Computed example of a mutant assay.
Amino acid sequence: MDIDAFVAVHRPAWDRLEHLVSRRGKLSGAEVDELVDLYQRVSTHLSIVRSGRADALLVGRLSALVARARSAVTGAHTPAWRQLARFFTVSFPVVAYRARWWWLGATLAFLIVSWVMGAWIAGDPEVQAAIATDEEITQLVEHDFADYYSENPAASFASRVWVNNAWASMLMIISAIFMGLPVPYFLWTNAANVAVSGGLMASRGKLDIFFGLITPHGLLELTAVFLAAGVGMRLGWTVIDPGPRRRLEALAEQGRAVIAVALGLVVVLFVSGLIEALVTPSGLPTWARIAIGVVAEAVFLAYVVVFGRRALLARESGDMERAPDVAPTA
Results as ranks from 00 to 15, higher is better:
219 L>H: 08
88 F>E: 03
72 A>G: 01
31 E>V: 00
150 S>H: 11
47 S>I: 08
27 L>S: 04
190 N>F: 00
126 E>G: 10
325 D>W: 15
128 Q>G: 03
230 G>N: 07
44 T>N: 11
136 E>Q: 14
99 A>I: 11
124 D>N: 15
230 G>T: 11
58 L>Y: 02
43 S>C: 06
168 A>M: 14
158 A>C: 08
306 V>C: 12
226 F>V: 07
291 A>W: 03
199 G>K: 03
151 E>Y: 13
58 L>W: 01
123 G>P: 06
265 L>S: 01
134 D>K: 12
132 A>G: 02
107 T>C: 05
28 S>T: 15
253 E>N: 04
195 A>I: 09
136 E>F: 08
168 A>K: 14
319 D>Q: 12
25 G>F: 12
160 R>E: 09
320 M>W: 15
204 R>S: 10
281 P>M: 12
230 G>L: 07
223 T>C: 13
72 A>N: 01
17 L>S: 10
2 D>Y: 08
243 G>R: 02
47 S>H: 06
199 G>I: 01
229 A>Q: 05
119 A>W: 11
251 L>N: 01
111 L>R: 07
31 E>D: 15
318 G>M: 06
295 V>F: 02
267 V>Q: 03
260 A>Q: 06
45 H>L: 09
18 E>S: 15
44 T>Y: 10
221 E>R: 12
138 T>C: 06
317 S>M: 05
149 Y>M: 05
207 L>E: 13
93 P>D: 04
323 A>N: 07
70 R>V: 01
173 I>W: 07
153 P>Y: 13
239 V>Y: 14
209 I>E: 14
55 D>N: 13
239 V>C: 07
237 W>N: 02
261 V>F: 00
42 V>A: 04
327 A>W: 03
243 G>H: 00
255 G>F: 01
193 N>Q: 14
306 V>G: 09
69 A>T: 01
